Amino acid sequence: MELGMSSRTKRRVTVATLLLAIGASCPALASTAPLSPKGDAMVQFERGELVRLRSGGPMMTVSAVKDDQVKCIWTDDSGRPDDATFPADVLQKF
């Protein structure tokens, strides 16, 4: 995990990672292609878009996209900038 990341953010990233790992290891839960909540093909993210974790949390700005990994930046509760990279399927656009 990144240094300076709040403990709440670390927990969220850990939970999201565990849920993805469980889904990937269970054939009944894994799908052949990632789907958006509407059942469409995977939503594409672009630099500068506003996103949030599907499970909640702060509004974030997409700073980079590589394959299905989306790097996001945001400010924490104390106003300090923070960043992390998330799988695209755990994010939603705003």
Rank of each mutant, 00 (worst) to 15 (best):
T9L: 05
K10Y: 04
R80H: 13
A41Q: 13
S7K: 14
V65P: 01
V51A: 06
S55N: 11
E2P: 01
G23F: 04
S25K: 11
K71P: 03
M5L: 14
S25F: 14
G39E: 09
A16V: 12
A28R: 06
S78D: 09
P58D: 15
A28F: 03
P27R: 01
K10Q: 15
V51I: 14
P87W: 05
P27N: 05
A21Q: 06
A30E: 11
P37A: 08
R11L: 13
L53E: 12
C72A: 04
S36G: 15
E46A: 13
F86Y: 15
L53T: 05
P58N: 11
A24L: 07
V65C: 03
K66G: 09
C72K: 01
L3Q: 13
P58V: 15
S6F: 02
P81K: 11
K10G: 03
P27H: 03
I22F: 02
V13K: 14
A33K: 15
D40H: 12
K66N: 12
E46V: 07
R47F: 03
S31D: 10
V15L: 11
V90E: 07
A84Q: 04
R11E: 09
S7P: 07
D89G: 03
A30F: 09
T61G: 11
L19Y: 00
E49A: 02
C26P: 01
Q92S: 04
P58H: 13
F45P: 02
A84S: 04
Q92A: 03
C26F: 04
A41C: 09
L91R: 05
P87L: 09
A41V: 12
G39M: 05
T75L: 06
G48T: 04
S31M: 08
E49R: 00
A33C: 10
M59N: 10
D76L: 07
P27G: 00
D83I: 00
S78I: 10
D89C: 06
Q69T: 11
C72E: 03
V51H: 02
F45E: 00
G23V: 12
P37M: 01
G57F: 02
L35A: 09
P34V: 02
T61Y: 08
D89H: 08
W74P: 01
Q92P: 01
T17D: 07
G23L: 11
P37R: 09
R52Y: 07
V15A: 15
R12P: 02
M42C: 02
R47C: 05
M1L: 13
C72P: 01
L50E: 12
T17W: 00
T9Y: 00
A84K: 02
E49Q: 06
L53P: 02
R12W: 01
S6L: 04
E46I: 04
M1F: 14
L29H: 01
D82Y: 00
G79I: 10
G79Y: 08
A21V: 00
P58G: 08
K66A: 15
S25W: 07
A28N: 04
R11C: 10
G4M: 09
A88G: 08
I73W: 11
K71R: 12
T9C: 05
A33N: 10
R11V: 14
G48Y: 04
V51Y: 02
A33Q: 10
K38E: 12
A41R: 11
V15S: 11
W74G: 07
A88S: 14
C26D: 12
T32C: 06
K93V: 14
D82N: 14
S55V: 11
G56A: 13
V15Y: 15
A21G: 05
